[in-house]
Design a protein around this nucleic acid. Sequence first.
DNA 1: AGCACGCCGACT
DNA 2: GTCGGCGTGCTC
Length: 839
Amino acid sequence: MNKSSSEPLFAYSSVEERTFFVDLILPIPVPRLFTYRVQREMNGLIKIGARVIVPFGKSRVMTAVVASLHNQPPQNYQARYVLELLDEYPLVTGYQLQLFDWMSTYYMCCVGEVLNVALPSGLKITSQSKVQYNPDFDYPELLTEQEAALIDELRKQPALSYEEVGRLVGEINVPTLIKSLVGKRAVIVFDEVKEKYVPKMVRKVRLNPRFEDPEELVALIHRLEKLPKQQEVVMRYLSHVPLQRSPALNQIGLDKTLLNKDDELSSSSLATLIKNGVFDTFELIQPRFSQTFAPQGEIKLTSAQQAASDQVMGHFADKDIVLFHGITGSGKTEVYIDLIQKVLAGGSQVLYLLPEIALTTQIVVRLQKVFGDKMGIYHSKFSDNERVEVWKGIVSGQYQFVVGVRSAVFLPFDNLGLIIVDEEHETSYKQHDPAPRYHARDVAMMMAHWQQAKVLLGSATPSMESYYQAKQGRYGLVELFQRYGDANLPFISLIDVKKERHQKTMKNEFSSVLYQALSDNLERGEQSILFQNRRGYSPYIQCEDCEWIGQCPNCAVSLTYHQRAAELRCHYCGHKELVPKLCPVCGSTKVKTVGYGTEKLEDQLQILFPDARIQRMDLDTTRAKNAYQQIIQEFETGNVDILVGTQMITKGLDFGNVSLVGIFDADRIIHFPEFRATERAFQMMTQVSGRAGRRADRQGRVLIQTANPTQAVLAKIIDNDYHALYSDEIVERQNFNYPPFSRLIKLTVRHTDQRISKRAADKLRLDLADKLGDERVLGPEEPLVERVRNQFLFDILIKLEREKINFKAVKAFIQECITNILTDKGLRQVSIVIDVDCL
DNA sequence: AGCACGCCGACT
DNA sequence: GTCGGCGTGCTC
């Protein structure tokens, strides 16, 4: 039966007949590669970086990427065969493989985990098991009633997936049922492997080629004289495709939808014409970004921008990385465009990274105007197929330039000349949740280094890390302090809410000053933005009689009250519950909301300014696919007077008519319990302030509500004095040995039993401190929220000075300590999350 | 990760 | 007596 096993052994000894093996990266969190055999007929075809399909374990089929080819059979086991080769040409470049490898060591995770986030899921493969009736089956008496019914159904159909079987038999255990049937040899199970990526097709029509002859065409039109509807369809086609001028245009044809768009009559006429052979139909793969933008002319740089661009180029002569510090509104984008054009003209590729939220906005439109459809966009709100198209477009050379989010650092560039990391300080560049917990800025630098590309970091408020490197001379530094078109910097003032509360001049959360400013703005028909970095109605509800507070059953946080949805929600695990009418503890009716979020502000505003058009923008209002852009557009067109929002309103929005920005709860931002709090506060408030007065004709106003106007950061924010912030903050960092003077690695121990969690964390700390020393290992400490999804957490922070440390050895040691915990009988069920360079 | 194997409780 | 819970270990 098995042909290969009956082949004589000596057949293999003939000259070049070596059996090849491949080492594969599988998209699973197992810290090693897997060796497979390659069928002889695949020998010359399989290449490093190509995808293959392989059997894995007892019942799985997976896509993997070839990491290496060799001919050393494994020592202790029999390698299995590669089932299929998916790519004739490598889909993953050598640089990417190098990157995967580097990331897995640097961020202490498995290559498989890296592969998992690197590859858009459209390039992975789903294997679906299908069930088929076994035609040789002849013992129906063995079957239960239910099985017999299913077999009857299966006889009528070619093959069913598990889900389809499930639908047929109802809510029962499908795998068990099928297993039983397989045992009785009534059915056969097989795997159908299919690519998830489906190219988008357009249905097109064109005239039958014989009508490309003008005489035939004229004759046709005459013939249709008595069939006016059909004639009209032909005429409409000709108006879109002027055959008279060039018969060749017929080959390109016309979208079918364009011919029968408005009425059913024309579509039935078209159908007749197709049936009679007047029109031919055909299908074409449509590139997804084909809005054929004609690149629109040159952009004009101001002299300051031109100077900045020249300085950047100058630094690139001897520095690989340049930090571009340009205040908000200084027009950094134009400088980027100038540089991108230069690099593209030199024949190299360019990657432009933006934080998630900033990417949906005007910047992309602006870039698209300049670069047209030569520019790829890589964004998580795009469908997977679109991501695959960008990936393939880079491999094929269609895209030389891509704008993208964090994960765009994984794209298969092989000739990068420049990577721009815009809003370099943004924390969303750091991936938090699934491993690899990478920082896209740092990964980009690594990639650039290998490809000898330059990196440009841009920010109005650079991270301490980057600015320090620049000051040390490791990065080039270019600073631009002039606002574009001479727009004035906004005038920032502080409002003492403590005083106002005392004087009883507050209207709910609004100080009289802010209230007055808002109402003036409304009168003038100018727009305002209000910033409160907290969504929901209020952060918690409390019983006034017994002080009970609504808590999440799974996490150690209070539940946020969402009035619109009339429910309490946990912002950590997503738990939802109804709002209790009475206090669940004492039965009191005095359950009150405490504190305020965007939803409450929106509410209060509506009461204070009944005629104002108010829009809220936060996670809750932007969940739907295009909601974000819709809100922005509404605001841009002036259909909204006041925009209330969280973080997301701070990013790169550029509105001409905003002359007032109000910031709530500055104190909570400043006193966030974290060593970066001051830096964050400065960045956040400066960023929002930048939304005000982006025009030359008037100065914008920013009002910050605080209970303590004397706080040092506030003065720096008012003066827009980044340098003062830097020089004060860097001293703090040095004193307490925080980044950029050290590197941090955070280990989080998790378990459902708090005692086990604590024991594991204590032991881990002890093991680590044994070699690293007490001063380098901090904790274990309960994080701010010590319980999430019913798991108890403990953090251990490892602080490593930058000089004289062998990081590789230290990481190996940390890994060893973790393995040590995970092999301990009593503690092995804990999970330990490693976060290198945690923020 | 996912899946099979294996060893203990509450049900027909 | 079985079904099914999830602890443990392995996957080339």
